[in-house]
């Protein structure tokens, strides 16, 4: 285990490993982003990135086929795109369509291209495409969640039912899930005809803000979404095939001791990690009966 204490001068809000698990990007209320090299033996600070004028809430690594690229989301209302070239980091793009805090950023599965999903407290979601010719194109979903959007993540590139038949054009369907201050979880689908994202499903179940939504990245029998909320619950939403109804199941009947901040699926999709306001991280898996059971916890 590697422990990094006091990496920043203020609270740290996010820390994510790159594709190879060798570099760690962290971000903080101290307005900076740090890049660490990590191995089993320890860690080494490589760079401190400054450019935001407010706390940085989230960072996301792009797939390595696009280069060493990191996106960051800040209270200053901006998303910055950082690139490393021969050890030097620079800002290569700035995304400033939002009027309020940008709360999350997430790169799409690389099959979709360099596509970034951005959510903001202005109630809107934007999708930015960085094209090969160097131009960018933004699509905005207005009024996605009243009061504000806290989180959004992409569906895996292949729709669950077509796991066997990859020639199906399902493969090209782009979906994402979002969660917001209206206590709702919403599923959006790209419509090539209108070139916009249309609301496909609205999922009701939480009684307070939805803080995080995570779509399981694996192509299992079903689609799985975990939503974490301020109401101290996590809901697992499952769909047997695209277009079918989403079924709702509480991860655990008993409420968590505090707000649930984040949910993250393992890359194979069968383990769910949950972090809460009590500083505990718990792991969960589905048993053969379709119930969710504890798979351990990470101690403080």
């Amino acid at each position: 285990m590697v422990t990094i204490g006091n990496a920043h001068d203020d609270l740290i809000h996010d820390a994510v490993l790159d594709y190879y698990g060798k570099r760690l990007a962290t971000c903080s209320s101290d307005k900076s982003i740090k890049i660490f090299e990590v191995s089993d033996e320890g860690h080494k600070l490589l760079e401190t990135l400054r450019g935001h004028d407010g706390p940085v809430w989230q960072v996301s690594w792009a797939h390595p086929k696009f280069g060493v690229i990191l996106a960051s989301a800040s209270y200053d209302g901006k998303v910055l795109i950082w690139k490393e070239d021969q050890g030097r980091w620079s800002i290569i793009s700035e995304h400033a369509v939002h009027h309020a805090s940008v709360n999350s950023v997430s790169w799409a599965p690389h099959e979709y291209g360099a596509l970034l999903l951005v959510t903001s407290s202005d109630g809107r979601i934007s999708i930015v495409e960085y094209k090969e010719d160097g131009t960018t194109a933004s699509t905005v979903v207005d009024n996605a969640h009243a009061i504000g959007v806290n989180s959004a993540t992409w569906a895996p590139p292949v729709a669950a039912s077509s796991a066997v038949d990859t020639t199906d054009k399902q493969q090209h369907e782009r979906r994402f899930v979002s969660g917001g201050c209206d206590n709702l979880v919403k599923i959006w689908k790209y419509s090539p005809e209108t070139k916009s994202y249309l609301l496909e499903h609205t999922l009701e179940g939480h009684s307070d803000w939805v803080r995080d939504v995570a779509w399981s990245p694996s192509v299992l029998v079903r689609s799985y979404i975990a939503s974490a909320s301020q109401d101290r619950t996590v809901i697992i939403w499952t769909q047997d095939q695209p277009g079918a109804v989403w079924k709702k199941q509480l991860l655990t009947e008993e409420k968590f001791p505090d707000v649930v901040w984040r949910a993250s699926w393992s890359l194979s999709g069968n383990i769910l990690a949950i972090s809460g306001g009590d500083n505990r991280v718990t792991l969960w898996r589905e048993n053969v009966d379709g119930k969710w059971e504890s798979a351990g916890q990470i101690d403080e």
Binding site: D14, A15, G21, P55, W261, S275, G277
Partner: peptide, 22 residues
């Protein structure tokens, strides 16, 4: 009411990164 105070994210090779408020 903005920003997570703790975080968790999975990486390659079942590595789990956690951030906790101390």
């Amino acid at each position: 009411w903005y920003g997570c105070h703790s975080s968790v994210s999975f990486g390659f090779g079942a590595k789990l990164v956690t951030v906790s408020k101390t």
